[in-house]
Structures are given as structure tokens and as C-alpha cells.
Design a protein around this nucleic acid. Structure first.
Length: 276
DNA sequence: CCAATTGTTATTTA
DNA sequence: ATAAATAACAATTG
């Protein structure tokens, strides 16, 4: 599931464990999620370590432990972070568990596309610092977007928005939400946009990120009880999977097709193939 | 049984 | 050589 804002939501859940020591680490070991970080190394390095702080960037999270230990988490397609009571009994898809005195931090992931990694050192690891600058940083300029689209001139916009090198954290539904708000057809090629349309796309990228972080992750306020409860019904989000779904702005029927390898939903009434 | 799923990466094709 | 398309990864659900 998790894209930018959902990742921040899950990070904030685990953040209740900041300042507390990890008493034990449990790993369900043949899980793919441990690809390069051996489960035994995670147990050895994180047992007894104090969780200090954490950060989310794009679709990844980094948890910092006292003594120069870093835990990287990528939730893949179906990963989730939970907080459970101390006596929590592990479930079938719970692959990685940190036991603290007052709670249990759980990583579960049925499809195991997620990833857990470990790093030791005084500074954050390369795989973290090399994540492309976020859509809400000063580096994400209209010019940067324009240049990227020019180099990918024949790519459909939908596929371009899924490229993490320029749009880190954007996934399937956020890409659709952005294009819908920007009134751009997902099949428009990246090179076909006018300067005005590029500006519109850039603005809606930032809008959707800001709003999603606020509504989903509760940034600037309290952490919502559940994922998605804060998403307004006026977003495409709630209508994209409904059969016979209608555009929340125009009431016109929505369309669904595979574009850029992913099921894509748009409102033909406001997103035209020709430039507007 | 077939198709679907909010992600990433290696491989193939153009 | 580069970029776009496709397959693969795994598990579950309708």
C-alpha cells in the first residue's frame, strides 16, 4: 500500500517507541524482507539498543538507535507497521518485531516485497542519503520537472510520475490524484506538455503531497486513528476502484485502464488527450 | 481457475 | 547505448 504519506503515518506509529530500549528482536527468518540484512545481525545489533529518532523519506523510513545503529524499512506493496501490547503473540505475516518494555513494535508484510536493512556508523547510510530530494524541498522546482519530462519525452505522464528518481514517494494512487487535479490525461506524453501545463503539474504534485501528509499522517496535528480516515470524499482516491465510479468534481464517469504497467483511473471529462 | 492488488528490479524489446 | 515495456517476486481475495 504505502506511498509517501502512508509511510509517514506508519513511521509516526513506531515513533511512540522513541527513547526506549529494545529488549529483544524477533525475526521470522526466511522472509525476503531481510535480503541483505541477515536476521541474526539485526538481532545482534539491535538487541539492547535505544531507539532515538526516526525519519520518513519517499517510501522509506530510517530509525536511528543510540551507538550508531540504523534500521531502514521499506514497506513494499503490502507492508505495515503496528504497535501492540507487550504480550502480543506474533501473527503469520509478522516478520520483524522489536520488543520494548511498554509495547511491541511490529512489521508485517503478507507479500514480502518490503525490506528491512541495517547500517552501523556515525552517519546515515548511502542508500538513505542518496534518495532523490523530496517534492516538498526547494530542489523540486518547476525547471527540474520540465527538464525531467523533456528527457523522457515519449513516456506517458503516468509512468513518469512513478519514477522515484524525480518523484520520490509517489505511487499509483498519488500519481492518479495529481494528474486528476492537474487535469492532465495520464496517457499524455511527458514531452507534449506546454509550459503552463508543466507548472500545473508541478503545483499539484506539491499540493497532493502536502494535503496527503496532513490528512493521512496527521502532519501538523494528531496521528489519525487509521490510515485514510482523514481523506476527504472529494478526492479521486475514494472513487478510483468503485465500479461505475464518478468524478467527484464533475460527476462524469471515471475510466480505468492499465498505463505504465499499473491500473490507472482518470476522469475523461476533465483530463483530455489534447492540450488545454 | 483466472484476475486483481497503493512497489521495485532485472531482463527484454525498441 | 538509452529508454520504455515486461516479467518476476509472494500472498491473498473475489
Amino acid at each position: 500500500m504505502p506511498e509517501l504519506a502512508e509511510v509517514e503515518f506508519y513511521r509516526r506509529r513506531w515513533a511512540v517507541g522513541h527513547g526506549d530500549r529494545v529488549l529483544a528482536v524477533e525475526t521470522h527468518s526466511h522472509a525476503r524482507i531481510f535480503r541483505e540484512a541477515a536476521a541474526t545481525a539485526l538481532q545482534r545489533e539491535l538487541s539492547g539498543a535505544v531507539l532515538v529518532s526516526s525519519e520518513a523519506r519517499a517510501k522509506q523510513m530510517l530509525f536511528r538507535f543510540r551507538g550508531g545503529k540504523w534500521l531502514g524499512v521499506h514497506l513494499g506493496m503490502s507492508g505495515e507497521l503496528h504497535v501492540e501490547p507487550c504480550d502480543y503473540a506474533t501473527g503469520k505475516h509478522d516478520h520483524f518485531i522489536l520488543r520494548q518494555a511498554r509495547r511491541t513494535l511490529v512489521f508485517s508484510d503478507p507479500r514480502m516485497f518490503g525490506q528491512v536493512r541495517l547500517h552501523s556508523g556515525q552517519t546515515a547510510p548511502n542508500w538513505w542519503t542518496s534518495i532523490a530530494p523530496g517534492l516538498l524541498t526547494p530542489a523540486f522546482t518547476t525547471e527540474a520537472v520540465a527538464g525531467f519530462l523533456r528527457r523522457r519525452a515519449r513516456t506517458p505522464l503516468k509512468a513518469a510520475l512513478l519514477m522515484q528518481a524525480r518523484f520520490p514517494g509517489i505511487g499509483n494512487w498519488m500519481a492518479d490524484e495529481i494528474l486528476w487535479r492537474a487535469a492532465l490525461h495520464p496517457r499524455r506524453t511527458a514531452g507534449s506538455l506546454s509550459a503552463v501545463e508543466v507548472r500545473r503539474l508541478h503545483r499539484e504534485c506539491q499540493c497532493v503531497c502536502t494535503l496527503a501528509l496532513k490528512k493521512i499522517a496527521g502532519v501538523g496535528g494528531a496521528l489519525p486513528s487509521d490510515l485514510n480516515v482523514g481523506i476527504p470524499k472529494t478526492w479521486l482516491f475514494w472513487h478510483r476502484w468503485e465500479d461505475g465510479g464518478r468524478c467527484p468534481r464533475s460527476g462524469a464517469p471515471l475510466q480505468r485502464e492499465e498505463i505504465g504497467g499499473r491500473t490507472t483511473c482518470w476522469s475523461p471529462a476533465r483530463q483530455k488527450l489534447t492540450a488545454v
